[in-house]
Design a protein around this nucleic acid. Structure first.
Length: 277
DNA sequence: ACGTTGTCCTGTCTGC
DNA sequence: TGCAGACAGGACAACG
């Protein structure tokens, strides 16, 4: 379940690994993972093109090509984008791979088949449906505390829980289930609290905590809880830093209370009934 | 209009 | 031991 920190880790890796590499060929083993557009056009549009940069918006990777086209890659829950030597046998659930000009391949692997690739032919990123509806990037320097406060205050009448708010990409982009739970625990706020109930002090705390937790996770190269790996096939180390996610039934590191897991906003939600109020 | 639920999919875990 | 069923969840459609 790659979220912002995992996708950002892959972005940074790929930016040094595939930029200037030329696509010799594209092998499509499971056509349905291509969103919008037929496989034959996808292949011809990419053949002979070079990667010129790698970007990210929310959990979406953006591979820029020298043709002016770009490739969106969403890993959803179980997707992986790995850069490996062509000599390495392709693992199960490899649905697509690019043959590069240096005897390496960029492979898209996704057991659950929820992820997708989408070729965007020219045009501006802001016009892409997948991107147009996204809220602000929480780590952008332009995302100020006042922006966050306004985001919440605009929905002050909302009956929405904080958990549901944090994982909704149209409010803040890039936070998923793991980091929503970690952020709320770090801020000491109960996931079922309503937006309207937050005090100014709690808003300040939450704003800072969002940035802090995501930045820490990037430093540790993300969380490998299920099978996430970076572009070189290496796991992330933030798993050891997790305070609540996957720890239900164990004592809270902060207050010793036994952690709980409940279904909140249709998601398994881990929290501490002792120190999250 | 808004918030919740169902759907896609496979690997892994639980319980009979 | 074996197998059925539950569960995991990102994002979008459909529903109430």
């Amino acid at each position: 379940m790659p979220e912002l920190p995992e996708v950002e880790t892959i972005r940074r890796d790929l930016d040094s690994l595939i930029v200037d590499r030329k696509i010799i060929d594209t092998k499509i083993l499971l056509p349905k993972i291509l969103r919008g557009g037929v496989p034959s056009r996808f292949k011809t549009r990419l053949k002979g093109r070079r990667f010129i940069g790698v970007g990210r918006r929310a959990k979406i990777l953006i591979l820029f090509l020298d043709s002016g086209d770009c490739l969106l890659v969403h890993l959803k829950m179980s997707g992986r984008l790995v850069y490996v030597s062509s000599q390495v046998p392709r693992e199960r659930h490899t649905h697509l791979y690019f043959v590069l000009d240096n005897d390496y391949e960029l492979r898209f692997v996704d057991p659950r088949q929820f992820g997708y690739l989408k070729l965007v032919e020219g045009g501006a990123l802001e016009d892409i449906p997948e991107i147009i509806s996204l809220g602000p990037e929480p780590l952008a320097s332009s995302f100020l505390q006042s922006d966050f406060v306004r985001l919440v205050e605009d929905r002050i009448k909302s009956r929405r829980s904080l958990k549901s708010f944090l994982i909704d990409q149209k409010f803040i982009a890039g936070i998923g289930n793991i980091y929503a739970d970690e952020i709320l625990h770090a801020a000491g706020i109960h996931p079922e609290r309503l937006l309207s109930s937050l005090t100014p002090a709690e808003l300040t705390e939450l704003y800072g905590t969002i940035k802090f937790v995501l930045n820490q996770a990037i430093k540790m190269r993300g969380t490998t809880f299920d099978r996430y790996v970076d572009a070189k096939g290496q796991p992330g180390k933030y798993l050891e830093e997790l305070q609540v996610y996957g720890r239900a039934g164990k004592p809270c590191f902060r207050c010793g209370t036994i952690l709980r897991k409940e279904r909140i906003a249709s998601r398994g939600t881990n929290f501490c009934p002792g120190c999250q109020n």
